[in-house]
Simulated assay, not measured.
Amino acid sequence: MTTTLQQEIERWEADLERIAENSASDNWFLEERRFAEAQHTITAFRGHILPLVAHQQPHDAIVSREIEHLVDHLEDLRNDLYRTVHPPTSHQEIAETMAALRALSRVALRVERSLEDVR
Rank of each mutant, 00 (worst) to 15 (best):
residue 96 E to K: 02
residue 81 L to D: 06
residue 93 E to C: 05
residue 33 R to M: 11
residue 93 E to L: 15
residue 95 A to E: 13
residue 113 R to Q: 07
residue 109 L to T: 09
residue 96 E to G: 02
residue 2 T to M: 09
residue 75 E to F: 06
residue 85 V to C: 01
residue 78 R to V: 00
residue 80 D to R: 02
residue 49 I to K: 00
residue 73 H to V: 05
residue 119 R to M: 14
residue 14 A to R: 10
residue 46 R to P: 00
residue 56 Q to Y: 03
residue 109 L to G: 02
residue 36 A to Y: 00
residue 102 R to G: 10
residue 91 H to T: 02
residue 46 R to D: 11
residue 65 R to D: 15
residue 117 D to V: 08
residue 93 E to W: 08
residue 74 L to H: 11
residue 72 D to F: 03
residue 16 L to M: 14
residue 35 F to I: 01
residue 34 R to K: 15
residue 81 L to Y: 09
residue 43 T to L: 03
residue 4 T to C: 03
residue 70 L to W: 00
residue 77 L to F: 09
residue 56 Q to T: 13
residue 105 S to A: 14
residue 59 H to C: 07
residue 87 P to N: 10
residue 55 H to M: 08
residue 48 H to I: 03
residue 18 R to G: 04
residue 73 H to F: 01
residue 60 D to Q: 07
residue 69 H to Y: 11
residue 33 R to T: 15
residue 52 L to K: 06
residue 77 L to Q: 06
residue 66 E to S: 11
residue 74 L to Y: 05
residue 32 E to M: 15
residue 62 I to S: 07
residue 6 Q to R: 13
residue 57 Q to A: 15
residue 70 L to D: 02
residue 25 S to V: 05
residue 66 E to V: 12
residue 7 Q to A: 13
residue 47 G to I: 09
residue 10 E to L: 11
residue 79 N to W: 00
residue 28 W to K: 06
residue 29 F to A: 10
residue 79 N to A: 14
residue 76 D to P: 02
residue 101 L to R: 01
residue 11 R to F: 12
residue 79 N to P: 06
residue 100 A to G: 01
residue 91 H to N: 13
residue 59 H to E: 11
residue 65 R to P: 02
residue 46 R to I: 00
residue 28 W to G: 12
residue 40 H to D: 00
residue 78 R to M: 09
residue 86 H to I: 01
residue 38 A to Q: 07
residue 119 R to Q: 04
residue 98 M to Q: 14
residue 58 P to A: 14
residue 34 R to Q: 01
residue 30 L to K: 15
residue 101 L to D: 05
residue 37 E to M: 13
residue 97 T to S: 14
residue 40 H to A: 03
residue 106 R to C: 01
residue 94 I to D: 00
residue 39 Q to F: 08
residue 55 H to T: 15
residue 18 R to T: 12
residue 71 V to N: 06
residue 119 R to W: 04
residue 47 G to W: 10
residue 17 E to W: 07
residue 54 A to Q: 14
residue 7 Q to R: 12
residue 44 A to G: 04
residue 33 R to Q: 13
residue 106 R to V: 02
residue 92 Q to D: 15
residue 67 I to R: 02
residue 60 D to S: 12
residue 52 L to C: 02
residue 95 A to R: 10
residue 74 L to P: 00
residue 29 F to M: 11
residue 106 R to E: 12
residue 86 H to A: 11
residue 4 T to E: 15
residue 60 D to F: 08
residue 61 A to K: 12
residue 33 R to K: 13
residue 10 E to F: 04
residue 37 E to P: 09
residue 119 R to N: 09
residue 9 I to C: 04
residue 116 E to R: 15
residue 28 W to S: 12
residue 11 R to G: 01
residue 43 T to P: 00
residue 84 T to A: 04
residue 45 F to A: 03
residue 116 E to Q: 15
residue 73 H to I: 09
residue 45 F to V: 05
residue 63 V to F: 00
residue 85 V to F: 13
residue 3 T to Y: 05
residue 34 R to F: 00
residue 9 I to V: 15
residue 28 W to N: 04
residue 87 P to W: 06
residue 85 V to K: 13
residue 38 A to M: 10
residue 81 L to C: 07
residue 66 E to D: 10
residue 14 A to Q: 11
residue 54 A to M: 11
residue 61 A to L: 08
residue 44 A to I: 04
residue 86 H to S: 07
residue 110 R to Y: 14
residue 21 E to N: 07
residue 68 E to W: 01
residue 72 D to W: 04
residue 96 E to R: 03
residue 6 Q to D: 09
residue 81 L to M: 11
residue 50 L to D: 07
residue 29 F to C: 11
residue 105 S to F: 06
residue 17 E to S: 10
